[in-house]
Structure formats: C-alpha cells, structure tokens
Design a protein around this nucleic acid. Structure first.
Length: 262
DNA sequence: CCTATAGCCTGACGGC
DNA sequence: TGCCGTCAGGCTATAG
C-alpha cells in the first residue's frame, strides 16, 4: 500500500495514538527487518523512552524519541501500523510490537518483509545520505525545484515520478493517477516537457496527493473522475470511456488512457 | 545515463 | 479441494 499519502495517514495515526507514553517494551519478531542495528541495541535505545513527535519524507516515517534518536519506518509494499489494547488481538504478521505504559500496543505489521525499521539521529541527514529527492508536499517544494528535478533526465515521466531520488514518495499507483490527472502519457520523456506541461504536472501531483490524504488514502473514497478505481483489468477511462492500456513501464504495471493521455 | 530483469518475502487469485 | 503459476501500491543490485 504505502506511498506518500498512506504514510502520511500513518503519521497522523501515530500522532493520535502513540505519543508521550513510556514505551515499556519492544518485541522484535523479525530481526531481519532491522537495518544496521541489532535487536538488543534497538531495544536498549527505545525501551523506557517515549515517542515525542513525527515527521515524514516521501515514504519514510520518522518518529522522534525522547532523549535522542529517531525511529524510521519504511513500509515496503505491505506495511501498516495498528494500535490496540488487548494483547491477545495482536495482528497477524506483527513484526515489531511496542507496548506502552497504558498497556496499549503499537504493532508494525508487514506480511511481506520488504520494509525496514531503523534507528537514526537526524532525519534530514538520513534524507541527504539516501539521496532522496524533495517531498512534493513540502512547503518549500516550488515549481522551480520541480522543473529542476526533471530537467536533464532522459527517463520517462512514469519512471521519473517513481524515482525516489528525483521526487520522494510517489509509487506505482499514484504515478498513474497523477499522469492521468495531468493528461500526460507515461512514456513521455521527462526532460522534454513544455513549461506548461511541467506546471500542470506539478499541480496535478499536489492535487492528487492532497486529495488522497484528505480521504485517508482510501481508494474507495476517491472522486469518481479519478483513475484509481478503474485501475484494473478491463478497466475503462472514467473521463471518456475508452479501454485503458495496461503495460509494463519501469518494471511496474502501468495503466493509462490512450485518448486522454497522448 | 537509461532500461529491463531478478531477487527479496509472502499471500491472494485464477486456471486446470 | 489441491496444485501451480502469476501477480502484488517497494527497492536494490546487476546486466545490457
């Protein structure tokens, strides 16, 4: 699931459930999702601390700890968070479980173990070290900056949007949606866009991401003229009714309308 | 620099 | 019902 909107929804979820309570216990059921840290070290740094605040960059969620340090959640394709009380109702595929002093738990649930958990000092340094591009919902992310990120690249739009070093946070589903809303063909070369198209893409990107967050990143709540509900085999364009084209681009299954996205 | 591919991991789904 | 292949909203390493 987790692209930028999903991760932003998880961030709000952590804010409304898990802050300012002492973390009495950390249980790690799958050590292989820990990045660069042992079970023991992770527990030592997190237990008896509190989650103080949250931040997000692209698909990464940062949860700052009291004292110092920051837990980084990366959700892979199937990660999610669940806050619950009854210890018997621990969700299946819980990989890490935080237990608070109010006896509630926060589970990092992830059927496919493609995500990661890390402990870092400084999110901005983390972003820099990974070479992540700007977060498209960052207040300081201007049209100029977007233009700059696209110029010089020879890749397709689909690929550029999904490239985390170019823009951070967009994945397969939302790249399709953004290109659909901007009426741009996914195979268009990113470096050859007109000023006008770049501008439209920029606004479509912000619009789609914001709208999704407003709707709790729930595909079922998205407007009818969005692609997302039709993004399946045999789907038709919600704007013109044309059969959608399905093809692999950058190794991912991509959907677009041959009429609306020329 | 770019693209395509395989691999990581595990479950859901469709065809026979 | 069971088995098998394919696919999945991410990312990385590798080859061409």
């Amino acid at each position: 699931m987790p692209e930028l909107p999903d991760v932003e929804v998880y961030r709000h979820y952590v804010n409304s459930t898990s802050l300012h309570q002492t973390i009495e216990k950390v249980e790690i059921f799958s050590a292989d999702i820990l990045e660069n840290i042992s079970r023991r070290e992770f527990r030592k740094h997190v237990e008896m601390r509190k989650f103080e605040s949250t931040d997000r960059h692209g698909k990464y969620l940062f949860v700052r700890l009291s004292e110092d340090g920051c837990v980084v959640f990366h959700f892979g394709m199937t990660g999610l968070l669940e806050y619950f009380k009854d210890s018997h109702s621990k969700p299946k595929y819980s990989r890490v479980l935080f237990t608070f002093d109010n006896s509630y738990h926060l589970a990092f649930v992830m059927p496919r173990k493609l995500g990661k958990l890390a402990l870092i000092e400084d999110p901005s340094l983390f972003v820099k070290d990974r070479g992540l591009g700007a977060d498209p919902l960052d207040r300081n992310f201007t049209l100029e900056e977007f233009k700059h990120a696209l110029t010089g690249t020879k890749s397709t739009l689909k690929s550029a949007l999904m490239n985390q070093k170019c823009i951070a946070g967009i994945g397969n589903i939302y790249s399709d949606e953004i290109l659909f809303q901007a009426r741009l063909n996914p195979r268009t070369k990113a470096g050859q866009l007109s000023e006008q198209s770049i501008k439209e893409l920029y606004h479509a990107m912000k619009k789609v991401l914001k709208k999704s967050i407003e709707n709790q990143a729930d595909p079922n709540q998205m407007p009818r003229n969005y692609l997302i509900a039709h993004r399946k085999k045999g789907g038709a364009c919600p704007a013109c009714g044309e059969d959608l084209i399905v093809e692999k681009i950058s190794g991912r299954t991509s959907y677009h309308c041959p009429e609306c996205q020329r």
